[in-house]
Simulated assay, not measured.
Amino acid sequence: MENANSLNMLERAPDKVSGAWVFKGTRVPVAALFENLKDGASIDQFLEWFPGVKREQIETLLE
């Protein structure tokens, strides 16, 4: 994983989603991606359920 690219796709602020890491420009926690994948969801399903997240963000994070 390229840390610099991954961090550009994520953000964290104490006043946003209780300080959890989220996909930049959204309020979608990164943890939601991993929880959904663990439960058997596909990336396409996740993108459908959380339309603010971009495929590029997920692919960069998973690299």
Rank of each mutant, 00 (worst) to 15 (best):
E2F: 12
E2G: 13
N3D: 08
N3M: 13
N3Y: 13
N3R: 14
S6Y: 08
S6K: 15
L7K: 07
L7S: 01
L7W: 06
N8A: 09
M9F: 02
M9P: 00
M9I: 08
L10W: 01
L10A: 04
L10D: 01
E11N: 04
E11Q: 13
E11Y: 01
E11P: 00
E11A: 06
R12C: 07
A13L: 06
P14D: 13
P14I: 09
D15Q: 11
K16H: 09
K16R: 15
V17P: 00
V17D: 01
V17Y: 00
S18N: 15
G19H: 04
G19N: 03
A20N: 10
A20S: 12
A20F: 05
V22G: 00
V22A: 06
V22R: 10
V22K: 01
F23T: 02
F23G: 03
K24L: 08
K24S: 11
G25Q: 07
G25E: 06
G25A: 05
T26I: 09
T26W: 06
T26K: 07
R27F: 07
V28C: 13
V28A: 08
V28N: 09
V28D: 11
P29K: 13
P29G: 04
P29Q: 14
P29T: 07
V30P: 01
V30C: 03
A31K: 13
A31D: 12
A32T: 14
A32P: 00
L33V: 02
L33G: 02
L33A: 02
E35D: 14
E35A: 12
N36E: 14
N36G: 08
L37G: 00
K38D: 10
D39C: 03
G40N: 08
G40C: 08
A41C: 09
A41L: 14
A41W: 15
A41H: 13
S42L: 05
S42C: 05
I43Q: 06
I43D: 03
D44W: 06
D44L: 06
F46T: 00
F46Y: 11
F46N: 00
F46H: 02
L47T: 11
L47P: 09
L47D: 10
W49L: 11
W49N: 10
W49G: 04
W49E: 10
F50D: 01
P51C: 08
P51Q: 11
G52Q: 08
G52P: 07
V53D: 10
V53A: 12
V53L: 12
V53H: 10
V53Q: 11
K54I: 04
K54Y: 05
R55G: 04
R55M: 05
R55P: 03
Q57G: 05
Q57C: 04
I58F: 05
I58K: 01
E59R: 08
T60E: 10
T60F: 00
L61T: 03
L61V: 06
L62T: 03
L62F: 04
L62D: 02
